[in-house]
Amino acid sequence: MKVVFERPRALSDVTTHYCPGCTHGIIHRLVAEVIDELGILERTIGVAPVGCAVLAYNYLECDWQQAAHGRAPAVATGIKRALPDRVVFTYQGDGDLASIGTAEIVHAANRGERITVIYVNNAIYGMTGGQMAPTTLEGQVTATSPRGRDIKQAGHPMRMAEMLATLPGVSYLARVAVNKPANIMKAKKAIKQAFMVQIDDLGFGMVEILSTCPTNWGLQPAKAMEWVDEKMIPYYPLGEFKVPGEVK
């Protein structure tokens, strides 16, 4: 009898602070599996955000730098330019990347920085207690939209993947989800691609990952997985928006 599944080497053997059923944990594991498969653990540097993933440096065995809120792509730019032989990635939530850090992500992508961005979209600010994010869906109830997001007042939920895919500096851009086994397998493939374009020096790579926040959505973990299918995917379609060598 052989082991067919176990903790990847790049994933620290510790209990995380994430809430029960939060899919940040699945995404961490997928990044760790990809780092193991590419054999890059010793030369990988992560840049952690402000948000629930602020402590990611405790959970992956690579080197880390924690950045000010939204500034991870700028910090990653500096690290990659100073140490071009390292594999540099950011791990950012939607509050971090699509709100306070909008300028940094747009310009890093536009400059075609050789970095990989893991963008975790859970349609809410998790860490601070469930306030509305730029990605919150129309009608979604949050702490700061108790009657549901009103698009006349708050604008439309932002589709970062589609927006950034228009920039020539971007080499790979996909949106995936981690709400069921088949989607988790596809998410891992996309994460690997986003690291590969950096290793092959092709340009900027990003994966937007639809993730759950059972605590602030007020849903059981399994129901939160269904909510991704029912509410998020219809507005945030899954797929590859840009692959190397193609301008869409």
């Binding site: 009898m1 082991v3 067919v4 599944f5 176990e6 994933l11 995380t16 994430y18």
Partner: peptide
């Protein structure tokens, strides 16, 4: 999400 399970 917590890598609790090892499979043989």
């Amino acid at each position: 999400p917590d890598c609790v399970i090892k499979v043989y």
